[in-house]
Design a protein around this nucleic acid. Structure first.
Length: 403
DNA sequence: GTCAATTCACATGAAAGAGACCACGGTCTAGTG
DNA sequence: CTAGACCGTGGTCTCTTTCATGTGAATTGACGA
């Protein structure tokens, strides 16, 4: 009986027409053939980098723009073109793309340089060598032959935040010491104010050319979404108005095209799963919630134990008191939580930092207030819809293996 | 009543430690010819 | 004799702790009206 049901289910599953024809077109790794509304930027980037094809060193280029404004896409697109041309004509141009945000790959000075050396065929142990040694290896690997190297550092702000600007200083100065090769740097940053706290010497040499990517507006987003969805979805699989709403929402949300595409994809998956004939507006709303919830739960699940314990303490304290919980109270609860889970409690100093981190992540809102005679502290409350609170608590209990 | 000094309860910074990783080179051990 | 196991050394990286300093308004207490 049951077996039959299952078979039926699979039969139905197979027979059902999926809404998608090519889901990959909505994934962030998808490289579209053309990039709407970024022609100007593409030609600008191309202009800056073109000298590489003539064997001259291009200016260093710095690109700002919020997330999902197509920075990476444009740079990748342009550099791909350059790469293919140089390959056709066997020009000595090499393009290295490194995403500095990827953990364990390039999020410290050492790792970045190690990764670079690897790109040039010299493996470097992931740790254990002095940093200047790694630099030397990289140097020699780079300078083996005459070539122009275009080094794309994506999310460079992450790297500098952690590793300091010395790295950039070293990189920008490399050219003076290289005999054969020349290297130019393309920095991509989400943070518009990133160069403000940069060493002026680095700043001037890094941003010989600058480019700012403005966020997409709603109409441009519509074009993008329409182009992608025509590839991704079945013909007329999308109800009228869905694209528009999706674009409008993303436009409100900093014009982030990546988010808009994700939203559309998740909505499509939801609609597909429920067997809907078309992707409708209600799916969009559901998708919005799902994304938000998944993001949050995933965030919590991947936190280290101590952070989970802290968050659990916050949840508990907030439940007891509803309004305005203070750092000291949380620390008290936290200590008892540690006792229950047999962990060694961290110092208040550290917990204070952890609380600040949660604030940054948007899981809680923590405002520093002064209560006058009664000191200065953070006023903390959960920034989570109450229907998800329970889910979060049980997730934390599970993570901490509490009853 | 007014005003400056005091005070609280942390926030925020800087520096240093601890411990996990990892590569490398030297030494020890067991297996092989 | 040699390959592999094992250890100590020297390095990075991340998370914490320790020590110091900063902070903003309620409270306090002196002062003057």
């Amino acid at each position: 009986m049951e077996e039959k049901g299952l078979v039926n289910f699979f039969e139905q599953f197979l027979n059902k027409r999926s809404l998608f024809t090519n889901k990959a077109a909505l994934q962030s790794s998808y490289a579209p053939g053309n990039i709407p509304h970024r022609d100007i930027q593409i030609s600008q980037v191309a202009n800056v980098l073109a000298p590489a094809l003539k064997g001259e060193k291009p200016s260093n280029l710095f690109i700002y723009g919020k997330t999902g404004t197509g920075k990476t896409l444009v740079v990748k697109y342009t550099t791909d073109q350059i790469a293919s041309i140089s390959q056709q004509r066997t020009l000595p141009v090499k393009i290295v793309y490194i995403n500095c945000k990827l953990k364990k790959v390039a999020d410290t000075e050492y790792r970045l340089v190690a990764q670079l050396s690897k790109e040039f065929g010299k493996d470097v142990p992931p740790t254990g060598l002095p940093t200047d040694e790694v630099y030397r290896i990289f140097f020699s690997a780079l300078d083996r032959q005459k070539q122009i190297v275009i080094l794309v550092l994506d999310e460079i702000d992450e790297l500098i935040g952690k590793a300091g600007d010395e790295l950039l200083y070293n990189l920008t100065r490399i050219n003076q010491e290289l005999k054969l090769a020349q290297i130019s740097i393309v920095g991509i940053s989400n943070d518009l104010s990133f160069t403000d706290n940069l060493d002026p010497r680095v700043k001037s040499s890094l941003s010989e050319e600058e480019l700012v990517f403005a966020p997409y507006d709603a109409l441009q987003l519509q074009d993008i979404l329409r182009a992608r969805s025509s590839v991704a979805f079945r013909q007329d699989g999308v109800e009228f108005g869905v694209i528009e709403k999706c674009a409008a929402r993303a436009a409100n949300d900093n014009g982030d095209a990546r988010r808009a595409l994700e939203l559309l994809r998740v909505a499509g998956e939801l609609a597909d799963r429920t067997g809907a004939e078309k992707l409708g507006l209600q799916h969009l709303d559901q998708a919005d919630e799902t994304i938000e919830k998944d993001r949050m739960l995933e965030l919590i699940r991947t936190q280290p134990k101590q952070h989970q314990a802290t968050l659990y303490a916050i949840v508990k304290a907030c439940k007891q008191k509803k309004e305005g919980v203070f750092t000291g109270e949380i620390y008290d609860v936290y200590q008892t939580v540690c006792e229950q889970t047999k962990q060694r409690p961290l110092t208040q100093r550290r917990v204070s930092d952890i609380i600040a981190e949660f604030d940054m992540l948007g899981l809680i809102t923590a405002k520093v207030i002064s209560k006058g005679r009664y000191g200065r502290t953070r006023e903390i409350s959960l920034a989570i819809p109450s229907q998800n609170e329970q889910r979060m608590q049980s997730l934390l209990e599970e993570g901490l293996s509490l009853a």
